[in-house]
Structures are given as structure tokens and as C-alpha cells.
Design a protein around this nucleic acid. Structure first.
Lengths: 158, 158
DNA sequence: CAGATGTCAGAAATACTGATATGG
DNA sequence: CCCATATCAGTAGTTCTGACATCT
């Protein structure tokens, strides 16, 4: 009984399958990022700053699925390692946009390539159309969940 | 800038969309489980024990995507609340199969119904065939990721 | 002996909560 | 005034790591 014993009807629910994919992906990302001494949150931060340099701390946190406090610690850690730089004083007031340093850019490129390989492995053997349909289906799930809670349907029997 | 600013190409990657779905689903589950004073891990434990009463601690942990240590704490908490019962002494040796109490069964039923409503909301407006295809696509992702790491394709340019 | 498990303990990262202050 | 933000502090839940004993 080493791995994944079949569960009741649990692993037939969409939600459980999503959890499984997320766990598998997180594991794969941890694995390829560990040699670079990066956590998933740290990678996400570097990647986000690369693609959207003007993001604030709170925006980075939301986009990386962590709290503002955690993202604050991530930013400090990356700054301490010389991967990003932040102006000591805020120009206007609240925002202190972080910026990738030269070494930060180099590390992000390597990490990004590693993560892209994970993505490619995950998508292996399927057409662009299939993958696009998959992503669209997931986006529909997100949209449905973000809609204000609809009326509760009468509970089904167990 | 209240919610979800468009990201670069990040939100076009399948992996990022999966993270988004997972986050949305976790949020929705937290919301409906909070009135029942249950965390997602606690609910998963109750549901798993309902469907597969013989699961060991380690198996529960894997199935609920938490560590053995965390699942151990979850089990103790549920036991302290009288939702499950565990034989004080192991019959054979290592395994101490937990069992839902009467109140545990009642709470699981309510929690399960709430989570099913979340699932239904997430799947709203799509046919069974579409949802089955979606789940199949995700299962293919899991299978692809669990395959032993294939040869790294030549890195693409950034 | 190898492998999986149950348990314990300490360190670390993360989240949740509340409070304060600033800026739009 | 309202809202989002940035920050700090305390508490709690989770993970990671290592360790040890037990059972198959």
C-alpha cells in the first residue's frame, strides 16, 4: 500500500481531482526549484516582478496566493540575497516597487525555464486545442466560484 | 485595483490557472466549513473515514494532502471533540483505525452537503460530458507529472 | 535487512487576527 | 468618510527535518 489507494467516490469529484493536480504540480515545482534554492512563493515573486515590475506588495501577494505578510517576508529575503532591490524611501507614499537586480534576472531566467519544463511535462502528449479547452474549463470553474453565492439547491440524499 | 490585475503571460499558463482554481475552491470551502467549525483538513478526514473507515493515519494524510504529523493533530482534535473514536491500544500493532461517532457522522453529513453545494456551484452551467472531459484532462496532467522525469527538452528562448 | 508506519520534538515558513498609520 | 495599502505584533496551524521504535 505504497501509493494512492483508491478512495470511495472522492476521487471521482472534480474538486478532489483539482486538489490532486495542484499537489502533484507543487511537488514537481518544489523539486526543480530546490536546486536553485527557491521556494514556489519566491519564484512566483521573481516571475511576477519580471512580467509586471510595477506590482505593489499586496498585488504580488494576491497573484502568488500568499498573504501580504508572507510576501513581505519573501521580498525581504530576496532583497537580502541581492536578487531584488527596493528604494529605501517611498517616492510618492505607500508604494515601493521592487526591481530585479542583474543576478535576480539571471536566476529568474533559470527558474522560469525549469518551471516551463514542468509545465511541458504536465501537458505532454496533448494538442494545443485540448490544453486550451482544459484551461477554459478551469477558468469557467473560477468564474462560477467567484460569482456571488447563488441560492442553495435542495440538498441531495447522501 | 481591487481584484485580479491582468498579469503578463502568467495567467495564460495552465499551471497558473490550476493554482487559481485551487485557491478559489479552497476559499469557497473554508467559507462553507467555517460555520461548522471545520477546517478543510478536518473535513477531508471525516469524509475519508466515512468512505474508507480502515484508512491508517499515513493513508489519511496522503489522501488529504497533509503531512502525517498534521493528520495526527487533526485526528486528536476530532477525537477531543468527540467526532471520532480511536481504540486506546492497537489491536495488532501499528494501526489504530479511527471511527466516526454518532455526532461525527451527523456533522460529516452536514459538511459533506455544504461541500457538494460548492462543487455544484463550481460546475454550474456545464454538461456532465464537459465536466467529465475536464476531469479526464486533469487526470492526464497528474499521470504525466507522476511519470519519472523525462529528458529535458532543449530550453526555449525566453 | 529494507520499507512503511506511528510517534515525538525542534526549527522554520505561513496564515489569521487585530491594531496603527498613510494615501487616494 | 471609505477603502486599500504598508507595517508591526501575537497566536495558531502547518511543514520540514530528524529521530527512534515497531511491525511486515
Amino acid at each position: 500500500m505504497s501509493q494512492a489507494p483508491p478512495l470511495g467516490s472522492l476521487d471521482r469529484t472534480l474538486g478532489y481531482v483539482i486538489k490532486q493536480v495542484d499537489a502533484a504540480m507543487r511537488g514537481a515545482m518544489d523539486e526543480v526549484l530546490r536546486p536553485l534554492d527557491l521556494t514556489v512563493a519566491q519564484f512566483a515573486c521573481l516571475e511576477l516582478l519580471h512580467q509586471r515590475p510595477e506590482l505593489s506588495n499586496a498585488e504580488l501577494a494576491r497573484a502568488a496566493f500568499v498573504t501580504r505578510q508572507s510576501m513581505n517576508l519573501v521580498l525581504r529575503g530576496l532583497e537580502a540575497r541581492g536578487l531584488i532591490s527596493r528604494p529605501a524611501t517611498a517616492t510618492t507614499g505607500r508604494a515601493r516597487p521592487a526591481e530585479l537586480t542583474e543576478t535576480g534576472r539571471a536566476l529568474r531566467a533559470r527558474a522560469s525555464a525549469a518551471v516551463r519544463r514542468v509545465e511541458a511535462r504536465m501537458a505532454a502528449g496533448r494538442s494545443d486545442a485540448e490544453l486550451a479547452a482544459l484551461a477554459d474549463g478551469l477558468r469557467a470553474c473560477i468564474a462560477a466560484l467567484e460569482r456571488p453565492t447563488g441560492p442553495a439547491p435542495s440538498a441531495a440524499t447522501d
